[in-house]
């Protein structure tokens, strides 16, 4: 017998991502997908964020890595619900991986779920996991030429965080040039300069997050 299908071959991930988005919506949760190279400072930034926001927002973190639970262990020490997903070689989180762990969270009680993606500036940009927004983290040591080399993530992200600005004096990173390139790729994107070591820009970043959660919850 003939079975009519009419399904996009590469649509599998998007369908599951849409389901995840609905789950977040039903529970009034703002979901953020943080993307950046290995060593950009994603986990440290999250630790600082938790320090500032855990009193005012109910948050949970989903960590994505190939192997180890090192990042989840760091987050767990801050007494926030955290789940580690190990991809065992996969270079990005996909919607199915995230959907599998959502039942482990007490979604009804959460305001904010941050998903720290696998360290990678390329592949995670291609795959929606049901998030409300993506954040692109670029550190000073990676070089000011990276936005044009990895345009997709800067186009996809609602906010770009330029991290480790305390090291600027020791590098040839041209801040104006990097910001100009990012803005060319994505007119209107929010750019926030941070240093986790010196705790600068963290308040600005947390304000952005709080506003995002508020907007989501006010519908």
């Amino acid at each position: 017998m003939e079975v009519s299908v009419m399904e996009d071959i590469l649509g599998g991930n998007d369908k599951i991502a849409a389901e995840n988005a609905q789950i977040f919506k039903n529970n009034n949760i703002f979901a953020l997908n943080i993307i950046g190279s290995p060593g950009a400072g994603k986990t440290t930034l999250l630790e600082k964020t938790i320090g500032k926001l855990k009193k005012s927002l109910n948050m949970a973190i989903i960590e994505g890595d190939l192997f180890t639970s090192k990042d989840a262990d760091r987050i767990a020490s801050h007494e926030i619900p955290v789940i580690q997903i190990n991809t065992s070689g996969g270079c990005h989180l996909d919607a199915a991986m995230v959907q599998k762990v959502l039942p482990q969270l007490n979604l009804a009680e959460l305001d904010l779920v941050i998903i720290e993606n696998v360290g990678n500036l390329v592949c995670p940009a291609e795959f929606n996991i049901g998030e409300d927004s993506k954040a692109a983290v670029l550190s000073i040591t990676e070089g000011d030429d990276k936005p044009l080399k990895y345009p997709l993530i800067f186009k996809e992200a609602a906010v770009s965080i330029l991290n480790k600005v305390d090291i600027l004096p020791f590098t040839n990173f041209d801040m104006a040039s990097a910001k100009n390139d990012i803005t060319c790729l994505h007119p209107g994107i929010e750019i926030i300069e941070t240093s986790c070591q010196q705790e600068s820009g963290i308040d600005e970043w947390c304000k952005w997050l709080e506003n995002a959660v508020k907007s989501k919850q006010n519908g």
């Binding site: 017998m1 079975v3 299908v5 009419m6 996009d8 071959i9």
Partner: peptide, 10 residues
């Protein structure tokens, strides 16, 4: 397009 249109099955 990149789609599965239909299947013939038993």
């Amino acid at each position: 397009e990149l789609r599965v249109e239909y299947l013939e099955v038993d």
